[in-house]
């Protein structure tokens, strides 16, 4: 039997974000979460700020998104963090450590060029 694919939240919410991506997709035993940027989850408005404030906003949204999908931060298995500058990694980390339980998930951090002037993008794979 083939594994089931389910978009979370429903596609109308995803399309309202203007991105051609679902915020999260459940496939089989895993939940795949899109690269999140700092936005207000209600209005979809961008919340540009410092690396620390964007990280805090993203992880707050991530927690809410995971819990709405029946998962949680302590079920995250892998995180990818993209930063506009690796010099900002400590500022991201200071916030990051407050969100994840011990032991935290596996993680990779990269410096890259990010769209729309965002400073941080965080994506993850979690147990559904």
């Amino acid at each position: 039997m083939s594994a089931r694919r389910e978009v979370i939240p429903p596609s109308d919410a995803a399309s309202r974000s203007g991105q051609p991506a679902s915020m999260a997709v459940r496939g089989g035993d895993f939940l795949f979460v899109s690269g999140l940027t700092a936005i207000d989850l209600q209005s979809g408005q961008r919340m540009p700020g410092t690396t620390a404030s964007e990280t805090r906003q993203i992880l707050t949204n991530l927690r809410q998104l995971l819990e709405a999908a029946g998962s949680s931060l302590d079920k995250v298995v892998k995180v990818n963090v993209l930063l506009h500058s690796m010099l900002e990694a400590p500022n991201m980390n200071d916030v990051y450590v407050r969100f994840f339980p011990d032991p935290p998930p596996a993680r990779t951090v990269c410096g890259a060029r990010l769209p729309d002037g965002v400073k941080v993008i965080i994506e993850c794979t979690a147990l559904a």
Binding site: A14, F32, A112, R113
Partner: peptide, 21 residues
């Protein structure tokens, strides 16, 4: 890229992350 991408994933698109390097 987004413009073309939408043609391939018109409904219930996958989770996605896009960047440049």
């Amino acid at each position: 890229m987004d413009r073309v991408y939408r043609e391939f994933f018109p409904i219930d698109p996958p989770a996605r992350t896009a960047w440049s390097m």
